[in-house]
Amino acid sequence: MRVPADNNGCDRDIRMIKLRQKVSGCLRTLTGARQFCAIRSYLSTATKHGISQFDALRRLAEGRPWMPATT
């Protein structure tokens, strides 16, 4: 049984890797796929906490990555 996609966060996060796979024909290595997913996950979490993706990437490049607060 096929379930139609909705627009929830999990579907959006998975959709990007499927789109990349469709455009390029494949993900060249398992390592590359893992790295892509790690970056997308980091950006998705930052966005959900109100941090812009650009700011999250800038801080990461500066060697002081944004981390969500723990309670």
Rank of each mutant, 00 (worst) to 15 (best):
P65S: 14
R59P: 00
G25K: 10
V3I: 12
T31Y: 06
H49K: 14
M16S: 09
I51M: 14
E62R: 15
G50P: 06
V23G: 01
Y42T: 04
M16N: 06
M16Q: 11
T71R: 14
M67G: 02
R59N: 11
I39M: 11
G32T: 05
A5Q: 11
N8V: 02
G50C: 03
A33Q: 14
C10P: 00
A46Y: 01
M1L: 10
G9T: 09
D13C: 11
S44L: 06
S44F: 06
P68I: 06
K22G: 05
G32Y: 01
P4F: 03
T71F: 02
D55G: 03
R58S: 08
R58T: 12
R58C: 05
F54T: 12
T31Q: 15
R12E: 01
R40L: 02
R34Q: 09
A5D: 04
H49F: 07
T45N: 09
R59V: 00
A61Q: 14
S41Y: 07
P68H: 06
A46N: 01
T31R: 15
I17G: 03
G9V: 08
F54P: 00
S24N: 13
S24T: 13
T71I: 04
V23M: 12
D55V: 03
P65Q: 09
A61C: 14
G63L: 07
I51K: 13
T70I: 08
R34N: 09
G32S: 15
A33W: 01
M1T: 08
R15C: 04
P4T: 12
Q53C: 07
V23I: 14
L19W: 06
R15Y: 03
H49T: 02
T31G: 08
G50Y: 04
R12Y: 00
M16V: 13
T70A: 12
D11M: 10
K22I: 04
I14A: 13
M67S: 11
T71Y: 04
W66N: 05
R12K: 14
S24P: 02
M67I: 14
P4L: 12
Q21R: 15
L57I: 09
K18H: 07
T70C: 07
D6S: 15
A46G: 05
A33L: 14
